[in-house]
Nucleic acid binder design. Structure first.
Lengths: 144, 144
DNA sequence: ATGCATCCTCCAGTCGCTGGAGGATCAAGC
DNA sequence: GCTTGATCCTCCAGCGACTGGAGGATGCAT
C-alpha cells in the first residue's frame, strides 16, 4: 500500500464486502454462481477482490431483496439499470406487479388473521376435547 | 362387492382420497414419508388404501396448512387432537404464536407496500436514467 | 514463527412440496 | 380375452433463496 488511505476505493476481499453491504459471504458467492454478480478478479491465491462497482451492485440487490423482489425480477432490474437509455416502463411494470403481489398477500394474511383470532379467542382453556382451536381445524369446511 | 353402496365407508385408493380432500397425490405420499399421515394398509399389489379416519386426518392437515401453520406445528396439533384429555392450552399457544407471526408479516408487508407505492407513483415514464424505481433501489439507505 | 482469521471449493440441508422417469396394475369396453 | 387408458408404485431431481459445515489453503498481525 503506497496510498495513505483513500477511504472507499481499491479492492477488498469478500469479507469486507459482506460487512459493508450486510450480505453474508456465502450469499455473495451464491449470487456470483447464479450470475447476479459478475465474477470479480482474483488474487494469485484465488481470493475474490471487489471494487466499488461491485459493492454498488450488491447493495442494489440487497435493497431489492429487502423490498421482496425475487431474484429473477432483480436480474431484470439490474439489467435495466445497466442500460439507462431504455424506457423506464419496464422497471415500473416489475415494481407494480410486485406491488400487486404484496397487496394480495396482505389480503390473504388478513383473512388468516381473522380466522386465527376467532379460533384463539373462543378457546376457554379446558381439555383438548373441548378446544375450539382443534375443533375449528377438524370442522372448518372451506371459507378460504 | 356384496354391499349396495354405503356412501362414505370402505377403503379408497390414494387418487380418491386426493380428490376428496383436495390434497395432491404426491403430497399425500410426502405426508406419509415425513410421518404426518400413518402408512395405510396396502393391497396385494402394494396400493395404499385409505379409510375415513385417514381422510379426516388429511383434511385436518389441509385446513391447518390453509391457515398457514407449518408442518411441525401441525404435527403437534395432530398429536393434541389424538389426546383429547390433554390441556387445550398447548394448542392455543401454537395458534397464538402463529397469529403473532401472521400479524408481524402483515406489518412487514404493509411497510413494503408503502415503499413500493411511493416508488411506482413517482415514476414518470421516461428513460431508466431518470427512473425513480431504479433510483430508489440504488439510493435506498435503510428504513427497513 | 505462530496462531487465528479469513478465504477457497464442494456438498448437503432447509421448507413444502412438485413433477418426471420407468414400470406395474386395474377397470372398462368390445 | 384383449386392449387401452387411467391410476398406481418407487425413486430421484428440482424449485427459491439461501445457510452452514467439512476440509484445506492462505493472509495478517504479533
Amino acid at each position: 500500500m503506497t496510498q495513505p488511505s483513500p477511504a472507499s476505493s481499491g479492492l477488498r476481499p469478500i469479507g469486507k464486502l459482506a460487512a459493508a453491504t450486510g450480505v453474508k459471504v456465502p450469499t455473495i458467492r451464491f449470487y456470483e454462481e447464479i450470475g447476479l454478480l459478475p465474477a470479480p478478479p482474483r488474487t494469485a491465491s484465488d481470493r475474490r477482490m471487489y471494487d466499488d462497482a461491485a459493492e454498488r451492485r450488491l447493495s442494489f440487490i440487497r435493497h431489492a431483496r429487502q423490498l421482496g423482489f425475487d431474484l429473477d425480477s432483480i436480474r431484470s432490474l439490474l439489467d435495466l439499470s445497466d442500460h439507462p437509455d431504455r424506457p423506464c416502463a419496464e422497471a415500473n411494470v416489475i415494481a407494480e406487479r410486485h406491488l400487486a403481489e404484496v397487496k394480495q398477500k396482505i389480503a390473504q394474511l388478513r383473512a388468516l388473521q381473522g380466522e386465527l383470532s376467532r379460533m384463539t379467542a373462543e378457546c376457554a382453556g379446558g381439555r383438548v376435547s373441548a378446544c375450539k382451536v382443534i375443533e375449528a381445524l377438524h370442522d372448518h369446511p372451506a371459507s378460504l
